[in-house]
Computed example of a mutant assay.
Amino acid sequence: MAAQTKETYEQTLRWLESSPSLDELCERFPSDWNVVADKLDAVKGKGTQGLHEVIGQYSTPARQSRDRQLPQAARMSQLVQRRMVLISLRSVSDRRESGVQEGAIRFGLIYGFLLQRTLFKKDLERKPVHLGRFGLVWRLSKQRNRLMPLVRPQGIYCFYSRTLIKNIVRIIDGRDAVEIAAGDGTLTGFLNEEGASVIATDDFSWSGSVSYPESVQKFDARAALQKLAPRVAICSWPPAGNPFEKSVFVAPSVETYIVITSTDEREASNWATYREQTDFELDDSTALDTLVFPPGRNRVLVFRRRGANS
């Protein structure tokens, strides 16, 4: 089973935050993988539905669990096993999405070149996307379904058009803004290039897959909102069921919260928090949805505090 001493428990939590691969998890926790493998065998043939059934057998991650009576070793095993199932689910989903059932998921030379020139400055450094150019390349690319399975492991969940950036800058309207869970700070960089004043913040918990530049300040969401007191908060693809978005709706300085998220509520955001909060009105603007790529996968939500001049 997973680690039993408090020191190892905390060390393992930090290690899990670096997003280890399934192979690394299995090597470090073989007995936990044996438990997971048995559960996966029991739902074999059900595909992603079966994996969701297995995930449902676990409570929320150990740090968020309300059942503090469980021994640390049991909570640790629960967290490790849940992570193993989530990675397995992502692998199955990526295969289904990409259409590549065997071997490595990759682009052909021509399509890879076209998408690289359209979406990136160099390597995996994103650039604001030209709407017309992207539309043409996307229609021509027969391998477009491979894009997100290839870039998601690097912390990339969507691409921003130039038009989207300009629209968000207009919503910010010169106010102080903070991006929480900003990852490598790409969105903040684009907004600031268009004249906004945004500070990128992140707790650096994805250091295993995301390279954090000096421009991203190390704050968790709650600390960032308390210390920087922005009038506008921004988040792009917050993790599904995350605990930190609750901090946005109780932060007294925040007048507007802009969220770029998934059309599938299971993939991103804390939708329970969105529905429970009562101080903000939601503008679910489909006009902005179409300005995030790939098309049909993203939603842009703008929460405005009732009574605020925002």
Rank of each mutant, 00 (worst) to 15 (best):
D94F: 11
I168L: 15
R117Q: 14
V232M: 05
G307E: 04
A42T: 14
Q101N: 14
G185C: 04
I199T: 12
P20A: 03
I258W: 04
V254F: 04
D220P: 09
G103S: 13
R297W: 00
S310D: 12
E125P: 02
T286P: 13
P230H: 00
F134D: 06
G50E: 06
G185Y: 05
T186F: 08
R82F: 08
C158A: 05
S93I: 11
W237N: 13
E24M: 13
S77E: 08
A240F: 06
I180R: 08
G135M: 02
M76R: 01
E24Q: 14
T8L: 15
W237G: 02
A2I: 00
R63I: 12
L164C: 09
Q72V: 08
R231W: 07
L79Y: 09
L79G: 06
L109F: 09
T118P: 08
L136C: 10
T261Q: 01
F249L: 05
C158W: 02
Y9N: 06
P295R: 07
D264N: 13
V248H: 10
H130T: 11
G208F: 03
K227Q: 14
P294I: 02
D283V: 04
V216E: 08
S215P: 07
Q11S: 11
D32M: 05
N145Y: 09
I234T: 01
E265W: 09
E281I: 04
V300H: 08
G296C: 05
K246A: 06
R96E: 15
Y111A: 14
Q11V: 01
S91V: 06
A223Y: 08
G185K: 08
E53W: 10
N298V: 06
I234M: 00
T12K: 12
I260K: 04
S88G: 13
L13G: 07
R144S: 08
K142T: 15
E193M: 00
T201C: 12
A200L: 04
R222N: 13
S253T: 01
G108M: 02
F120G: 01
S21L: 01
S91A: 14
L124Q: 08
Q217P: 04
I87H: 11
K227G: 12
F29T: 03
R266H: 07
N167D: 13
S91R: 11
A37D: 14
V100T: 12
A287N: 13
T163I: 14
F293C: 07
N242E: 11
W206Q: 15
A74G: 00
V302D: 00
L147Y: 02
P128L: 11
D184A: 03
L291S: 02
S211C: 06
L136Y: 11
E10L: 15
V80Q: 00
G296L: 10
